[in-house]
Each structure stands twice: as C-alpha cells, then as structure tokens.
Design a binder for these strands. Sequence first.
DNA 1: TACGGAGGGGATC
DNA 2: GATCCCCTCCGTA
Length: 145
Amino acid sequence: MEMGIVQVGIGSVILYIEGNKLTKIELSNKKLDEKECGIFTEQIKQYFDGKRKTFDFEVKLTSGPVFQKIWDYVKKIPYGTTQTYGEIAKKLKTNPRVIGFAMASNPLPIYIPCHRVVSKKGLGGYTGGLEWKKYLLNLEKKYSQ
DNA sequence: TACGGAGGGGATC
DNA sequence: GATCCCCTCCGTA
C-alpha cells in the first residue's frame, strides 16, 4: 500500500494507493510532510491550485449498488455548484437520509465531491470536519468565476 | 435482525 | 421562528 501526502492551506490530504488505484482519501488538519505519489498527488495539487476541476485517475470503490449509484451521481455535480440532499434523493428515487449515509461512508472525499452536497437549511455535515467543507466550497467558488 | 445516520416536511406552540 | 415527530432505507454488525 502506497501513500501520498499533499499539504494545502487548511491542512493535509492523505492519499492511499493500492496497485494503480486510489482506495482512500483522508483529510487531516495537521501540516504533514509532503510525499509525492505520481499522478495522484499531482492532480490533487492542481485541484487546490484551481487548475483542475475533474480527476481522471483510477479509484477503487467497494460498497453496495445503491451507494455506487449515489456516488456516481454526486461525481457529476458541476464544479462550483451545490445540490441538496433532498434534490438528489428525489432524482435517485430514494431518501435524503440514504444520501447522507452514503456521503458519511464515502471513502474518497474531494474525488467524490460530497462537499457540493448541502442540507436544505444549511451546510449539512462533513466527515473531515465542516472547516474542510467550507474551504472546498470557497475554493471552487473562487476558481469557477 | 436490529440499529443508526452529514435530511426533510408537516404539525404544533 | 423553534421544537417535536414521524417518514424512510441501506450497510454493517
């Protein structure tokens, strides 16, 4: 299992790579030492520089069919925009509750832009902490203009 | 089989 | 507005 670390303004992004595929992304609020790891760290860096809006490396997702569907849909939410749990639930003919659960168990934040999924009333929650969610939304807002 | 989770909407005060 | 309550449902243990 290989590992890559990218340092960003708010903390560090830790990437876990198995074979040629990204298996897990972890968000840390600590400043960790950077560690290059091929296209994975490269694309993440570009994303945080506002130079990249989509990722095209291989990933490994292991979960049930419903979550796969939800993640696939979330991946298609355009850069710089947001959608509510309710809207997505309606599109996929399921419950907002299920969407929330899918986001919470999503192993690949950023790659699957769950920060673009917000609650109808506010921000909703975020696995790596709400600071990250705000940071990412702000970043995309800044670079999508 | 039971349980919980990053929501939503309606009823009520 | 602010609570409360009930809906609903997939993955994990």
